[in-house]
Simulated scan of single mutants.
Amino acid sequence: MTASEPGTDGQSGQPRTAQHFSLAAAADVPEGYVAPGMPGAPVAGFLPEPAEEPVRRHRRRRRTGLAVATAVVAMLAGALAYGAAVARVGGTIGWLAIALAAAVAWPLGRLGGRGLLLPPLGALLAAGALFLGQLLGQTLRLHHQAGTAYAELVGDALPLWRADRRLLDYVFYGIALIGGFLLTRRTAAPQ
């Protein structure tokens, strides 16, 4: 048997090698395109809804001043509510520090947006609400015990507040600070 001549019948005596094919350049197809007839292809006659136009910065203005003013009002209202609750119970209710932080953080985040100074301000306002609420609670408690006027008790409330502090109260101040900071960041609406 003799080997065939290369080129006469198209076969040579060498083993076949792998053939490499190149793919044609992909056509400009939008992302998410599914060819008709493939699973996930839209039904004939279905027109997708147009994409919403992205919210532009000039359409939604930051209302930082309004946010801070609303947060200060929320801080004072929260301090009044907390002080009344402390006076009614006769002790501290430190776990309400989370509610005070949420009451301050919500308007800061929703109205102020993602400002860099708003989360630290939310932390300070939440701790301030807790402090004012505890002072008000001390003043109301002294008023009910002694029966004197509120104006005379305001000077006595701060030394009594200092003397009445425990380790757990400082933990609640930490909760108010951290809660005010994190909740302001989480409720911040993108601008």
Rank of each mutant, 00 (worst) to 15 (best):
L130M: 08
G155T: 01
A149I: 01
E52H: 00
A35S: 13
E49K: 03
A24S: 12
T92S: 14
I98D: 00
V72E: 08
A27H: 12
V29W: 00
W95S: 15
R61F: 12
G7I: 05
P107K: 02
S4Q: 11
T8S: 11
Q19L: 12
R88H: 14
L100D: 00
M1S: 02
A51V: 11
A84K: 08
V72Q: 11
R63F: 15
R57Q: 13
H143S: 14
E152S: 12
L167G: 15
L182Y: 09
P39I: 06
R59T: 07
H143T: 04
G115L: 03
A24V: 07
T17Y: 00
L153T: 02
P48F: 04
V72G: 07
R185F: 01
G13D: 03
V171R: 05
A97Y: 03
L96Q: 10
R141P: 00
V68K: 09
A69L: 11
G122S: 10
P39Q: 14
L130K: 03
Q134F: 01
G113H: 07
G40C: 12
G122N: 12
G94Y: 09
V104N: 05
T70N: 11
A3D: 10
T187D: 00
A67K: 06
R62D: 15
V73S: 05
G37F: 13
Y33A: 13
A189T: 11
Q19V: 11
P190T: 04
A149K: 02
A81E: 07
A149D: 13
R185D: 00
R61A: 15
L100W: 01
R162F: 06
G147D: 14
G179R: 05
P107E: 05
T139E: 09
E52L: 00
A189H: 09
A24W: 08
A163K: 04
V104R: 00
V86N: 12
L23V: 07
V171F: 12
A176N: 01
R62C: 12
V89E: 13
A129Y: 00
H144D: 15
A188V: 03
R162M: 06
R60A: 13
A149Y: 05
G78S: 11
D156H: 10
P42V: 03
A3G: 10
A69K: 02
G113C: 08
A176G: 01
P107T: 01
G180M: 03
R62M: 13
A189N: 04
E52A: 03
A149T: 11
A103F: 05
L140I: 05
Y173W: 08
G90S: 15
F21P: 14
G91K: 11
R16P: 14
G115W: 02
L118M: 02
F172H: 08
G7S: 08
F21D: 15
F181L: 10
A105F: 10
A101K: 08
G122Q: 07
T184F: 10
A35N: 09
E49V: 04
P159I: 02
A79N: 02
D28I: 01
P48R: 07
E49R: 04
L168T: 05
A99Y: 00
L125G: 10
R59H: 11
G32I: 07
Q145W: 04
Q11A: 10
V43G: 06
T184A: 10
T64N: 13
P30Y: 01
G137V: 03
